[in-house]
Simulated scan of single mutants.
Amino acid sequence: MKLNRKTLLKTTLALTLSASIGLANAAAIDALKKFNTDTDGISGTFSQTVQSKKRSQTTHGDFQILRPGLFKWDYTKPYKQTIVGDGTTIWLYDQDLAQVTKRAQNQTIGDSPAAILSNKNALDASYTLKEDGSEGGIDYVRATPKSNNAGYQFIRIGFRGDALAAMQLRDSFGNNTTIRFNNLNTRPNLSRSQFTFTPPKGVDVLSQ
């Protein structure tokens, strides 16, 4: 059974923060800010597990990010779903449902982690950062939202050495999302045209 589409969108948008967080050690904050400043694009593959009190669901796919404000997440297993942020609109295409949902990007990402994609200043403006220990060879930084209406409690971003390895997110309902990253490229050859989306013929298009 699939998770609620609204929950999926929020947790997926949270994935976009992963491209902007650095090392959890004495120099973690400096490394984080340098990474945030220097990184204009990133791509790779991911596995994402969303765990609630009653069930757990794991999905797999690949992603692309081009700053400012462009991102694409392709879920490939166990179902096919695409989320595209084109700078103005966020499109969510569910192939099984033959349905596309569109939302205004600035209203959808708001003060969420995805805002870091569109505004490099969002890291300092929206989060309180601190080192958060190591687990399984991965060093973590905890990012706590400054806003009380962010919709999540905290985000933990993990690095193995200088390579992005994992992210953990707990939302305001107590659901936990864990993401593992692989095959990362911090200098992908991306163009803005790759982040355009046109709804396929015959699908329902819903505006929210």
Rank of each mutant, 00 (worst) to 15 (best):
F63S: 09
K53G: 05
T59N: 10
Q153N: 13
Q51W: 01
E131A: 13
S112W: 08
T128Q: 12
K80L: 04
T101E: 06
N4K: 15
T12C: 05
N4T: 13
Q57D: 07
M167C: 05
N25C: 13
Y152K: 12
W73T: 05
S52H: 07
D38M: 09
L129D: 10
T186Y: 07
I29G: 10
Y75F: 12
N149F: 08
K102F: 06
S126E: 10
L70G: 02
S134L: 09
R142N: 11
G133L: 07
N25G: 15
A143H: 10
N189L: 07
L117E: 12
T37M: 15
W91V: 04
I83D: 02
K72C: 04
G136D: 11
A163Y: 01
T11C: 05
T82M: 12
L164F: 02
S191A: 07
A27K: 09
T39M: 06
Q168A: 06
K130D: 05
G85F: 06
G87K: 02
R192C: 01
L70R: 06
Q168Y: 03
Q51L: 03
I157D: 00
I179N: 02
R170W: 00
A115P: 11
A163D: 13
R156Y: 01
I157N: 01
L8I: 08
N121R: 14
G158L: 03
T108M: 08
A166P: 12
P113S: 05
K54D: 11
G174K: 07
K34T: 13
L13F: 06
A165F: 09
L70T: 05
Y79H: 09
N189T: 14
T39E: 04
L97M: 14
T128R: 10
W73H: 00
I29V: 14
F35R: 12
E131D: 14
D139I: 11
F159V: 11
V84Y: 04
F35A: 10
L17H: 12
N121W: 01
T186V: 13
Q208H: 10
K77C: 01
N106E: 12
N185M: 01
L9Q: 11
T76R: 05
N189K: 12
